[in-house]
């Protein structure tokens, strides 16, 4: 019997101690790594040094090409990115491409208005899924299959791309600010070799005058 309080005391002490230990672990002290063990990572994965951009799946920034941003003021100018060529609409400017954006533009008239081209492997998730995703970005509900089937098409990259045009409030990826009275004009081309999406977003007032320029840009894209 007399040992019992001791035992309970030790349990409580243990509780208090473990609390104390967890509260104030000393970070300044170097801590030892675990003992070595055989890794499941293949040597091939680390033998070739690769740049951070490549490892992290980010398109290298335009540090090497300082004048990647070339704005066009007057007539459409020719532009291109590697294999891809296009006619830049008047007043638009080219931005540096990113890992996702093969071609990246600022639309004339508003800082927030942008347009870019993405390529995705396979069908990029499918036509309907991408349309619904864009609907969601515009704060709209999904379209029915019938509505999707009834969407018009426009030429792009040698195919007939589906044209969508939604109004709503835009909250795109990356959380770069919400545009209340926004518009999204997009072309979706889903073909056997892959999917291409050209998408223009921005304030509705700005985009109203840029739809023709957008369609012209789409028609001018070629490999």
């Amino acid at each position: 019997m007399p040992t019992l309080p001791f035992r309970t005391g030790s349990l409580l002490t243990f509780a208090v101690l473990s609390l104390a230990v967890s509260a104030c672990s000393d970070r300044a002290q170097p801590s030892e790594l675990s003992a070595p063990r055989e890794s499941s990572t293949p040597a091939a994965a680390i033998e070739q040094p690769r740049s951070s951009a490549e490892r992290l799946g980010v398109q290298a920034p335009p540090a090497a090409a300082p004048n990647a941003t070339n704005a066009s003021n007057g007539a459409p100018t020719s532009g291109g990115n590697g294999a891809l060529k296009w006619e830049l609409p008047a007043g638009w400017s080219e931005l540096a491409p990113t890992s996702m954006r093969v071609a990246n533009f600022r639309v004339a008239g508003d800082e927030r208005a942008e347009c870019y081209l993405t390529f995705l492997a396979g069908d990029g998730g499918g036509l309907a899924a991408n349309i619904q995703r864009w609907r969601t970005q515009m704060g709209q509900g999904p379209l029915s299959p019938q509505e999707i089937a009834a969407l018009p098409t426009k030429p792009m990259l040698g195919g007939e791309a589906v044209l969508v045009d939604f109004a709503g409030s835009f909250s795109g990826m990356g959380g770069g600010g919400k545009i209340e009275d926004a518009r999204l004009v997009g072309l979706l081309l889903v073909g056997p070799q892959g999917a291409a999406f050209l998408k223009m977003t921005g304030p509705a007032s700005t985009l109203a005058g840029q739809v023709d320029a957008f369609l012209a840009l789409a028609a001018s894209l070629r490999n």
Partner: peptide, 27 residues
């Protein structure tokens, strides 16, 4: 011999690191 060895540090060892108080890991 071309085999890969690994030494690991669990999350607790480094998760509070800052530039002023970096977590130092060694073997």
């Amino acid at each position: 011999d071309g085999r890969v060895l690994e030494r690991v540090a669990p999350q607790e060892r480094y998760e509070h690191a800052t530039p002023d108080a970096p977590a130092v890991l060694r073997a």
